[in-house]
């Protein structure tokens, strides 16, 4: 769709914040319009990047689960179950999110297991998990920050 969805949402947001908010009568109404505008900026950004963010993260998480399986101990079944999750059949956000949820559930089980192992290999792998968790927050961060 052109103009791009993200650009259109930005335009709607700017209209709400510049043309509508000031004309709104009550403080609560103004707050609601302001929040709607801010949300639209974020949704515009997520529309553009959401599928890519999830595809990248699902690939990285799947790799971690695969590499960490030998360290999973009693959590091996949970990790195997997560790994058995088929890749999303399409690129709908809901499909990619469902895959992400299954993989990250397995990652929690693997992380807990790795933390309980006293070895250099486990400690190194623990650092790999933390590095991915840090990266996951960067993927979710919005560029636009208002207020």
């Amino acid at each position: 769709m052109r103009p791009d969805t993200s650009r259109t949402l930005q335009g709607v947001a700017l209209n709400l914040l510049t043309n509508v908010m000031g004309e709104t009568r009550t403080p609560f109404g103004q707050q609601t319009v302001g929040i709607a505008g801010q949300l639209l900026f974020w949704i515009a950004e997520e529309c553009e990047r959401g599928a890519d963010r999830l595809v990248v993260e699902n690939r990285a998480t799947r790799q971690l689960l695969s590499d960490g399986l030998p360290l999973a101990g009693t959590a091996a079944k949970s990790v195997e179950a997560a790994l058995a999750t088929p890749p999303a059949a399409d690129f709908r956000i809901s499909s990619l999110q469902a895959e992400n949820d299954a993989l990250r559930k397995g990652l929690i089980a693997l992380h807990a297991a790795v933390e309980s192992v006293d070895s250099d290999e486990a400690r190194a792998f623990n650092e790999r998990i933390w590095a991915e968790l840090v990266e996951s927050t960067k993927r979710r961060q919005f560029a636009v920050r208002l207020g």
Binding site: Q97, N100, D101, R104, K105, L107, H111, A112, L133, S136
Partner: peptide
Amino acid sequence: LSPQPIIRAAIR
């Protein structure tokens, strides 16, 4: 709504 690996690590 979705698993929270960082908060789960914090809880542990």
